[in-house]
Design a protein around this nucleic acid. Structure first.
Lengths: 232, 232
DNA sequence: CTGCAAAGTGAATGGTGTTCTCGTTTCGGT
DNA sequence: ACCGAAACGAGAACACCATTCACTTTGCAG
């Protein structure tokens, strides 16, 4: 069960998305393709399982980075998490594509708007937590937002009830920051930045400072940012 | 030749990425699968051709939006282009995934860093042009950037030589803005935002104002932004 | 009319997901 | 100790897939 997913991931890493096939997995495990149907109803379901595991792993990686930040600075923790996010993605390009690429393969590649995909939430809420803490300490610059009312997804709204420091502007600040982070990281990992820039680590670190300024509204001391520009 | 790509795209839209097969195309065209090899060396090459056409189409859509902006305000043009970008992507989700999803299928899905993909450039430079114009008029807020030196990709550096108003900080401002736009749009189209928000149009419009502020450094009059919040 | 090149056919090879039937193993209850 | 049921896996089969090769048809230039 777990081993199947491990083999699938291994094939994904080694040969790309099209290399992970039921038959290849069974070959690798010394089994018959049909035997795998005892554990997964389909290949898509298997990949969905792998994807779920990967989100958990990514979540743990970012949380670990958060917990290893000395002192008690929410903004510093956020930047550490952002760096961990990028580092993990760069070290696991193929997995990243499966997780945060076009549509999750779990359902189908239909052109219709797919139903909510809750998998990314487990990573997102880690960021949300720190942003909320930043807000409680008065360090969050929330944009004026009367546009978005209570149009949050039911799941998120339920998660929010009773949590203090999570008013709507805070949620929006989080979503904007989350999308911004996704943009710079996914673009690099997917190779859509390569036509313009070779040293994407420098671009990322500079953008990270912008990122911090967007959140805190103040200049962020570059010395404290801890940028070393070594990754990739 | 062109019809083949049209049929391929049609299949992509109707049935998702996995539905576009050489045999399905040939079936749709009343031909034999092997006949298609007269025109394309492989299915991947065919898809690469489709992808290239799509980038051209997206580029034309954004440029059209730019040219239909009344007055002479680079920032307003940029926002119109951003909206056109999103609108086109939402109307062509499957195509968007092929263009700006994980790795272009032209080469292979290997885990190694792929060679530069120049296709997105034709859309990017349209934004770059307006940002340059904004800079020439002194309306661009360029971030302090001593981190990124002349680490631009050779192709972009060549494009830049001789162009005025395209110093390094301007390039960085463009790249940051480009990535930010990509983040909010791709995240929505790929469905990675659905767990948190239902009305993503409102989120986008609010983020667009942030986007304008990041570029211009000044508050942007929401009345002039022309947001109507009707699209999706 | 002849030659030639482009365009398309049909069969063949080897890979794929999925389903079905069938045998084997394992293990818990009595 | 036995039996039954459930779990596990094998194997064949079906339909689809990309790709290749040898072959025929078409159409046009000389």
């Amino acid at each position: 069960m777990g081993e199947i997913k491990d083999v699938a991931r291994q094939l994904l890493v080694k040969g790309g998305p099209q290399a992970v096939s039921l038959r290849a997995i069974s070959r690798e495990m010394g089994m018959t393709p049909s035997a795998l149907y005892r554990y997964f109803p389909s290949l898509d379901a298997l990949l969905a399982g792998v994807r779920s595991d990967l989100f958990e792993e990514l979540g743990e990686a970012t949380m670990e980075a958060r917990d290893s930040v000395p002192g008690d600075d929410p903004l510093a923790r956020l930047m550490a998490m952002a760096r961990a996010f990028r580092t993990w993605g760069l070290a696991h390009r193929a997995e990243f594509g499966l997780m945060l690429g076009p549509p999750p393969p779990g359902v189908e590649g239909g052109p219709e708007p797919q139903e909510p995909d809750y998998a990314p939430a487990c990573v997102g809420v880690a960021f949300l937590g720190e942003i909320a803490e930043l807000n409680r300490r008065g360090g969050l610059r929330t944009p004026s937002v009367d546009l978005i009312e209570d149009r949050l997804a039911p799941g998120l709204r339920e998660y929010l009830t009773g949590q203090e420091g999570l008013e709507l502007p805070v949620i929006f600040a989080f979503l904007a920051a989350w999308a911004r982070l996704y943009g710079i990281i996914a673009m690099e990992i997917f190779g859509h930045m390569a036509w313009a820039v070779t040293d994407s680590a420098a671009l990322f670190e500079t953008e990270l400072i912008n990122f911090a300024q967007q959140l805190s509204g103040s200049e962020y001391d570059r010395q404290l940012a801890g940028s070393d520009l070594d990754g990739s």
